[in-house]
Design a protein around this nucleic acid. Structure first.
Lengths: 223, 223
DNA sequence: CTTTATAGCGACCGATCGATCGGACTCTAT
DNA sequence: ATAGAGTCCGATCGATCGGTCGCTATAAAG
């Protein structure tokens, strides 16, 4: 039989792998990481199931690769645009802003990838959940670090409990995610911004978004 | 072959249906509504698949029945214990307290049934999602009604946006649900209570309103 | 050119999915 | 006593699941 796609160089294989992961991220955002199916992916991409699975070995390995790719996207869309802001409340507010925007823009069609995924893996065990916990833990501790900076600078009360602020911030973001996904209510973004404003009052007289080209905040790699 | 379970009266059938729903609620709380499988349920309950499905017709009908039962449990565990409190902030705080306790006690082993379910049905359509939206909408509007009462009584600023308060309350509760399920962190309940306190300051013992309206937000100090 | 590594295919595996069917059985109503 | 309704089972259906196997065709290495 005539081979339909006769190119199988190593370089092509890398591109194929990219295509698989990219499509898997989009699909998993909507259907969940467990909702990914090899057959569906293969037919969407014009591959055979064995050809597709050959790149990863098992479905679980694919899920982990998808999760890591999602983290790269999250980093690019949320962390990086806010990284250069002044550490403390200013950067916290910047991260919240990029996060809300990332949800508004629908970077992932199913809302925040990690919120969905952590809810999906609530009660299970295994490597996927372990990775999720580590990724989410990195998110929380990075926020908490900036809360501590803010408290040290007097932008927040000195007795501020960083974990408490992170807890409430996450709540705001999850509530936004939930509202958008369940009701398609775009106006909820304004509510989220108002809630963030109340939780993290804009620091007084500090020049907003002072661009200091030399300084880079912790350059990110949630993993 | 000797029939293993020879009792099939109408009354027994009702009990069987109860058993199915009860077990399904517990299972769906952990595995999700979509994660319910007829075969698993049947084997857990010592029934045949056809015998089990005969009570509902389709899996979707079972899911709807499970959702309605979950709502009954939620009503019993969260709404009812707070129903007799003074309408307004007092009752809002009571509902939040029962909700937090309901999560602490693990009424559903997988956390709040409706939080999990709405996240699961984020991106899908169909009757199950429709019912979920209605149920969640009822929750929101009941909370909003009490917020309006509170604002009318001066317990909250008169220009309070009820939907905003509900949005933030839901965030606190979802953050708690998330923390408990992903990390098993029981201390998070204290954080949730603190956050609720800040959002809904306890009204003074006298039903008068010493708070000056016009001041936005529940409390000027974050954290 | 020859050899080796590998990308990808097609066929196939056992398991499980939701669902259907006919029939055996028990209760209830007449 | 008998008819009807309803409960539940065992067998079975087609579809799909994740995954394996042997194979071919090609690219890369020698």
């Amino acid at each position: 039989m005539a081979p339909v796609s006769p190119r199988r160089s190593v370089a092509e294989a890398r591109r194929t792998r990219e295509r698989i992961i990219e499509h898997s991220v989009a699909l998993a955002s909507l259907e969940g990481l467990e909702g990914l199916t090899i057959g569906r992916l293969a037919s969407d991409l014009g591959l055979s199931k064995s050809g597709l699975l050959g790149h990863f070995g098992t479905k679980e390995a694919l899920q982990l690769a998808v999760l890591e790719r999602a983290a790269v996207i999250f980093d690019r869309e949320v962390w990086r645009p806010a990284a250069d802001a002044e550490p403390g409340v200013t950067r916290l507010r910047a991260v919240c802003a990029t996060w809300i925007s990332y949800l508004e823009r629908g970077v992932f069609p199913g809302g925040c990838f990690f919120v969905s995924a952590t809810f999906e893996y609530d009660g299970r065990g295994g490597p996927v959940r372990d990775l999720l916990r580590r990724q989410f833990g990195a998110w929380r501790s990075r926020l908490a670090a900036d809360v501590r900076v803010a408290a040290g600078r007097g932008e927040l009360p000195s007795d501020t409990d960083p974990e408490q602020v992170v807890f409430e911030l996450n709540g705001i973001l999850m509530s936004l995610n939930h509202t958008i996904q369940l009701y398609g209510d775009t106006g909820a973004a304004a509510r989220a911004r108002r809630a963030v404003d109340r939780l993290l009052p804009s620091p007084p007289s500090a020049p907003v978004a002072p661009r200091r080209p030399g300084e880079r905040g912790a350059s990110p790699k949630p993993a």
